[in-house]
Nucleic acid binder design. Structure first.
Lengths: 332, 332
DNA sequence: CTGAAAGCGCTTACAG
DNA sequence: CTGAAAGCGCTTACAG
């Protein structure tokens, strides 16, 4: 047995020859398809591990009409606050892709995805948040390349994956209610967004869970300016709410500014919580209770979903829970 | 002529058959290798464009023993201020990769790169800044896969690409000198870093360009704390410098803090410039004059370099200039 | 449980 | 200028 570094790139033919069996058998021992005697399988496995063989994925791809690549479509110019999102998201995707022997191609310039498809370089696509305009989804449907979109889609027949906004919001709301708060007011952004609906639904469901009656007079949507936030906050104060729940960090920051302006103290005068975390909220004084979503897990889930669409059987349940409630001083 | 959407995936065989020529000829007409009559070439080109043919890159790869993929090695956990860097960098890489019909695979989890290499999925690698520990470079050298590193390397025989720190610093310094400043003081970080040396060299060269004598009493390196910055700033003030040049934004921020603390006004009492820009500097009051590097161009250059190592003939000069001097109020 | 053979869609000596 | 044929390294009916 030679201990020198193996530099030769073994092929399946080499193995067959060295082991005195056919390459069909080698192939099957490697893939686990078809019945092969345990003994032969064993011999093959040993050979490949001592000789450091690894199959040529390009060749396998050609034979199987697969590439073992997926594309991740990224916006070319995402903003500062999304940047952390995309890094973690990519990280999660890479992780589960790698586990399943897939690689991730990135596409962030015009025409790149089209080229990948034309060149047969990918088996599937992940459309990241904010890349999901309807026309590109229509285009993708036409090409027939499987894809998942992160977020929500209005197109039908499109597979979406997102943070579990409803469940998470429900959980945070439940916790607030269990802490004894009874009069929660909720402020959110664009009413037509799916995410707004989901978060609101979670909020409502929690009230139902605890048999607490709530009506829409405590719901303020389409908050997209300081002025609107200010009005909503005034109403909340007027109705003597004990906590203001913001659907996202943007709205929450508006709320905090309003309260600050009006010299209302958090949490002594009124409590505050957010359905979406951000560094600012964590470092606010006082720090704000909020939901924290694990974007890496979101990436893992998105990739897992896509791979199973590609016929891969995923090992673990690929739908890990990806949120947690972080209780901070603002609801003390 | 059918106007229906072409769904069939044409192969080179189909084209050959339809056109009544051999697939050898089709292949050559497509690749431009070997002599083919202009007429046949024309016919083939027409056919492929009307029938929307694009070659199967996996198959071509197998035949040529190439993949038309490059890997981009990214740190899994880069910090906040690097995040913008990596996005732009990736953008540049994608752009020139795409132009040359290459795709870029991302690798940010352990073992992923090794797998890509073992699986024959890449032709070359770009090691991004802060991924350049010596051991991985040694490993890569062993594998024989071509790679470029961004930044500087101490390993020999390694191809590096970086911002043109020397040239850029020289230019900014020259501009300051031409504005009439005569006593510049420079503060920089870790002396052993290549980048520090390059920036210092540019600073010195500019003085030489203008026949201005300068000695090392005006150079303060290894500034890595407020205390050290403060001492250097005091000395600068004591020697009546008219401008403090910081080698990077971190050092520059220290300088600004010191000046602020000492109630020294910029630019009326002393001017300030930085060899590396950041948002903070741009939004400082007053905004700080600095060099701005175009990271996207850096990415394009890195990719161009790698592709030419892979035997691709690059179209444009792939070594675009990637910096510019931004004059702001701090040197008014 | 195993093999011979055809095939995946290209490229490229070699021969004309 | 063009083609027939072998080959890239795998997989997979088909046959035993």
């Amino acid at each position: 047995m030679d201990t020198t570094k193996e530099n030769k790139n073994y092929t399946i033919d080499d193995i067959a020859r060295e082991l005195g069996i056919s390459k069909t058998t080698v192939s099957r021992a490697l893939s686990g398809k078809g019945r092969i005697s345990p003994a032969t399988t064993q011999r093959v496995k040993e050979f490949i591990s001592t000789h450091n063989y690894s199959p040529n994925v390009m060749a396998r791809g050609l034979a199987q009409n697969k590439t073992y690549n997926i594309a991740l479509l990224l916006p070319a110019d995402y903003g500062e606050n999304e940047v952390a999102f995309f890094r973690e998201f990519m990280n999660g995707i890479c992780k589960t892709a790698g586990k399943n022997n897939y690689d991730v191609l990135i596409s962030m310039v015009d025409g790149q995805l089209e080229r990948m498809i034309a060149n047969h370089k990918i088996d599937g696509i992940i459309l990241s948040r904010s890349m999901v305009d309807t026309s590109s989804q229509k285009y993708l449907k036409e090409t027939g390349v499987p894809f998942v979109v992160v977020g929500s889609s209005t197109e039908d027949g499109v597979v979406c994956i997102d943070n579990s906004n409803m469940e998470a919001s429900r959980e945070l709301t439940n916790i607030l209610l269990m802490k004894g708060m009874r009069k929660l007011v909720i402020l959110g952004g664009n009413e037509s967004y799916q995410v707004t609906q989901n978060r609101l639904e979670g909020f409502m469901n929690a009230h139902r869970d605890q048999k607490i009656i709530i009506d829409y007079s405590r719901v303020f949507l389409d908050i997209d300016s300081y002025a609107k936030a200010s009005k909503a906050v005034e109403k909340a104060l007027a109705m003597d709410a004990d906590c203001i729940v913001a659907m996202d960090d943007y709205v929450c920051n508006l709320v905090l500014e309003c309260l600050n302006e009006k010299k209302i103290k958090v949490p002594s005068d009124i409590k505050v919580a957010s359905f979406y975390d951000s560094k600012q909220l964590a470092h606010n004084s006082p720090p704000v209770t909020s939901l924290h979503f694990n974007t890496k897990v979101l990436g893992e889930n998105a990739c897992g979903k896509l791979l199973s669409m590609l016929g891969e059987k995923m090992e673990e349940s690929s739908e890990d829970m990806n949120y947690q409630v972080i209780l901070r001083e603002s609801t003390k």
